[in-house]
């Protein structure tokens, strides 16, 4: 996605610029409102706007100052610059967990939070409001009469049997650049050893590395790629042209990322933030939910194989510098085999 591409540029520029770089800013609600909720988020405006609109509808007189930033810039804004945001909404579960663990989040409980399933809340600080699976995106036309793989094993067999077809035409995240790619990859290794076999097979077939899901989807659509592994399923399904490619939720296990929100410890309007969290959770969970992600990816259908990433200190393990160095060197040796 464009924002991710931009965030790389901003990340590089952030080394000399002192202030964090916002990708986009927007103001919702009355211009002169006294009650302003400041949200910093990794989700772009179009994705989050329906939630903001329904909240403002239910809570007149309130304005929302919405800032979009990459997950790295978001950390910088909160930790280094102590910007006074009320809410942090992010898909970087590990960084969100670290923010909460390191004391940047405020505890909040309400009827809505206590009704949450246990996987969707951590320490009354982090609240999950989406479930977004990592999918395999396959070009229907490019694959021809080859079978569409349903598991990683299928995928490995397919790649091994037709190396000439797939050489240079598979893609996945560059986990050194993408926080989400790193999160998916590390969680895959926790779930099964098969990730390393797949990575080695793809490495042997000159896998192309991408910064973001949207670029991979574009590449599949254009025919540059036949198969993209660990694509954010919610982005793939939310595109209007999603009929052009197949979105596979691997039936051996499907890693699911949770988008989470937290109230900052420095929040100026904690009460309003709490109401926004309640609204967010009411819209995302339960029988009357209207989730932000398309319901066409029917997660309930693959519930037994769902591997929801557990919010908690386990996520801190892969943020450990020593651990990350070890992991990345293993990953590099699997990808770059010559």
């Amino acid at each position: 996605m464009r924002q991710f591409a931009l965030s790389i540029v901003l990340m590089l520029s952030a080394s000399w610029a002192s202030a964090f770089e916002a990708e986009n800013v927007a103001w919702f609600g009355p211009k002169d409102s006294e009650r302003v909720l400041r949200i910093i988020s990794t989700a772009d405006i179009a994705f989050f706007e329906p939630m903001i609109a329904s909240f403002l509808n239910a809570t007149p007189g309130v304005a929302i100052d919405y800032t979009v930033a990459s997950s790295t810039e978001l950390q910088k804004a909160i930790i280094e610059e102590r910007q006074s945001f009320d809410l942090v909404v992010s898909s970087a579960m590990d960084l969100q967990t670290k923010l909460a663990n390191d004391g940047w989040a405020r505890r909040y409980t309400s009827d809505a939070t206590s009704a949450l399933p246990s996987w969707a809340v951590w320490n009354d600080m982090l609240f999950a409001f989406t479930q977004e699976p990592a999918a395999i995106v396959v070009s229907k036309t490019g694959l021809g009469d080859l079978p569409i793989p349903q598991t990683r094993n299928d995928l490995i067999n397919l790649l091994r049997q037709h190396p000439d077809v797939f050489r240079g035409r598979t893609g996945t995240y560059d986990v050194r650049q993408s926080g989400l790619g790193y999160l998916f990859a590390t969680q895959d290794t926790r779930a099964s050893e098969i990730y390393w076999r797949l990575t080695e097979v793809m490495g042997g077939l000159d896998v192309q590395l991408f910064c973001c899901s949207s670029d991979m989807i574009d590449a599949v659509k254009s025919g540059e790629l036949l198969i993209a592994y660990n694509v954010l399923g919610s982005y793939a399904i939310n595109r209007p042209d999603h009929q052009d490619y197949a979105i596979i939720l691997p039936s051996d296990f499907t890693t699911v990322m949770l988008r989470t929100a937290l109230i900052t410890s420095t929040a100026q309007s904690p009460e309003l933030s709490g109401r926004f969290i309640d609204h967010l959770l009411a819209k995302s969970h339960g029988p009357n939910a209207a989730p932000l992600t398309s319901s066409e990816l029917d997660l309930g259908r693959v519930e037994p194989s769902l591997n929801r990433i557990k919010i908690g200190p386990g996520l801190l393990v892969f943020l450990d510098q020593l651990k990350k160095t070890t992991f990345l060197s293993e990953w590099e040796s699997a990808i770059f085999q010559n």
Binding site: G312, P313, G314, V317, F318, L322, K323
Partner: peptide, 8 residues
């Protein structure tokens, strides 16, 4: 090699 279980 920080074990995942050490913190979880």
């Amino acid at each position: 090699d920080l074990p995942y279980s050490a913190l979880s």
